[in-house]
């Protein structure tokens, strides 16, 4: 493999997100805390990768480093082959705290439109994309409402619409449904999968909910607890057409779920990520 000027080994054509030896060490009065030791993985076009791990496994730290909000101590993040240094174009993020991530002084329409406006998209196209995105999340009727006039689930859908409308290379989602009630969570999970398939998106989805990670993902990456490394990378070979009832009743779902669960349990009790040996 050739090495380009950024020192990154040439990446295969459709790798959208390349993370290599990413690490983060915090230095406080109490000394150094190694939060993330080393993370390396690639995200290909169209993948839906779920990141699970025990609490304190640096999931949010990882997301902040990938999205350019936090400077890594070591390692590389590359988006479409280009190095990420600070918030990069082509990345969209959906945060857990939906109410705090939307601008309360703007209407729903204005909220979804803002990233497009900033990017210089012409007005007619902007309006069309905004309407399309809001219709995708079934909120076409709420254009002129304010976020705080909507329920929690609807607010998160606005955040998703905003991400979708910006046509990102990679969509990052940071435990987006953790603060939402169980029924709404199911609806939103299906919504994300629908949007993913319709727009052939590449998604990195962080969650602590094991069932959710298997239900949603085409791939589950398990993180160890701090100092974090990748403990396991499991391909999810469930059918593409999924629904809350039948998919979760599949025997294969239960197998995958157990596998992830065991990995996470192991991660909780063993720091630094020694790999679990199990029968093939």
């Amino acid at each position: 493999m050739a090495t380009d000027t950024n020192g990154i080994r040439s990446i295969r054509g459709d790798v959208r997100l390349h993370v290599e030896n990413l690490s983060k060490t915090y230095h406080g009065r109490a000394g150094a805390v190694e939060a993330v030791r080393s993370l390396t993985f690639d995200l290909h076009q169209g993948e839906f990768a779920c990141l699970v791990g025990p609490s304190g496994s640096g999931k949010t730290t990882l997301l902040k480093m990938i999205s350019g909000l936090l400077e890594p101590t070591g390692g590389i993040v590359a988006l479409d082959g280009k190095r990420v240094q600070g918030p990069a174009k082509g990345l969209a993020v959906v945060f857990q705290e939906y109410a705090r991530s939307l601008f309360p002084w703007m209407t729903v329409e204005a909220n979804v439109e803002l990233p497009l406006k900033t990017a210089g998209v012409p007005k007619a196209e902007r309006k069309a994309r905004v309407l399309e995105a809001l219709n995708d999340v079934s909120l076409g009727h709420a254009l002129k409402s304010y976020p705080w006039q909507l329920s929690g689930g609807m607010q998160q859908r606005v955040a998703i619409a905003r991400a979708v409308a910006s046509r990102p290379t990679v969509l990052l989602m940071d435990e987006p449904f953790a603060a939402v009630d169980a029924q709404t969570r199911g609806e939103l999970e299906d919504l994300v999968r629908k949007v993913w398939r319709e727009h052939d998106m590449t998604i990195l989805f962080i969650t602590h909910d094991i069932d959710e990670s298997v239900y949603l993902g085409s791939r589950v990456i398990v993180l160890s607890s701090s100092p974090t490394v990748i403990q396991d990378d499991i391909a999810v070979d469930l059918p593409d057409e999924r629904d809350q009832i039948s998919t979760r009743a599949l025997p294969r779902f239960a197998e995958l779920r157990t596998q992830v669960y065991e990995e996470v349990q192991f991660a909780k009790t063993n720091a630094g990520g020694a790999r679990v040996e199990r029968a093939a």
């Binding site: 350019g68 909000l69 969209a92 993020v93 705290e97 991530s101 939307l102 803002l114 900033t118």
Partner: peptide, 14 residues
């Protein structure tokens, strides 16, 4: 100003 809001703005290039 809310940190999550500020991060949202940063991420979307505002």
């Amino acid at each position: 100003i809310d940190e999550v809001l500020s991060n949202s703005a940063k991420v979307y290039g505002i």
